[in-house]
Amino acid sequence: MNSLHAGQFFGVTNTNIQIGGLTLTDTEYTHPYVDWHYHENAYFTFILSGNVIEGNQKEIYHCSAGSLLFHHWQEPHYNIKPKGYTRGFHVELRPDWFEAHGLKSNSLQGSINMQDPHLIKMMYNIFKEVKLDYRLGGLAIESLLTQLLDTAAEPNQSSFKQKPIWALRLKDLLHDSPCATWTLQSLSDELAIHPVHLSRNFSKHFQCNLGDYIRMLKVQAALRMFQHKDSTLTEIALTCGFADQSHFIRSFKALHHITPLTFKKLLKKI
């Protein structure tokens, strides 16, 4: 089985940046199939464009733009790339990086498909800092990455087993239809719970209020559409459930601190 060293991925790596114990790469995937292999460092894969299927010893993940995966080192997996342009952003972490930042290197184990929009938002912001100017953004990158790892390792993030059935059902509803126009009453009716119970207890299980969570999902749905060159901001805003372009821009800036147009340009940078 192949073992890949830091910065090695199957494809054309256009960017390779070293920040302390981190290796950051921006890679176009070119191999239709990559046999079982593992990496010497723990790392995140963030799909920026296209699609890829990844299998490990327990699960198979169908990943599209916006998907975030984590692999512990020496975790074997394989990849299948459907036809079309596919691009990924990777953040590799050496063991000494964990130690230097007071993090346990075994806090996350195995291969994980991270679906929490809080974690995806952090990774989008890490990517933004890299593309703006990694030499000035090194502190921000390490701070965001530390926060991402700490949040992902929390017990209520690592498993949904302790969540009530209505919270599991609600997660599926919101993630399956992120651009739908939900109301508190319509969600309550779907879940067969009282609106007051839903609004009062939502933050206990999702770490923010209901409105902020839905806005994160809508913005991330919009970010996935950035790969389609012909889509205007107005078209993206309306497709993703925003009232208008202005509402979309305000929501986007609140999460990523730059305009959607600026972020769209950063996604084009290799």
Score class of each variant (00 low, 15 high):
L145H: 08
I141W: 02
S158N: 05
L184T: 15
T234P: 02
L198S: 03
L145D: 05
L184I: 15
R169E: 12
I236P: 07
F226P: 04
Y134S: 12
L238C: 06
A192Q: 10
L136M: 09
E235M: 08
L144N: 14
I165S: 09
Y213R: 01
L238K: 11
L223K: 02
D172M: 00
A167C: 06
L149H: 01
S199V: 14
L170V: 06
R169T: 13
F226G: 01
S143F: 04
Q162L: 12
N209M: 00
K163H: 05
Q220A: 04
E154G: 10
M225G: 02
Q185K: 11
D176N: 13
L139M: 10
K229V: 10
V219W: 04
R224V: 00
R200G: 00
A140C: 03
G137A: 09
L191A: 08
K204Q: 11
D150Y: 04
R224Y: 00
P195C: 03
L184H: 07
R224I: 00
S159H: 02
N209S: 07
R224N: 11
L223P: 02
I236K: 02
H205A: 05
S186F: 00
S159L: 00
N156R: 13
E235W: 02
N209C: 08
D230V: 07
I214L: 10
E142D: 15
G137S: 14
L139D: 14
C179K: 07
L145M: 09
L173P: 05
T181W: 04
M225R: 13
G211S: 09
L139A: 13
L184A: 08
S188A: 12
T234W: 01
A192F: 02
L149E: 03
L168M: 13
G138Q: 13
Q185G: 02
E190Q: 14
I214T: 09
E190F: 04
D212Q: 11
K171V: 02
T232V: 07
A140P: 01
G137N: 13
L217K: 06
R215P: 01
K161W: 07
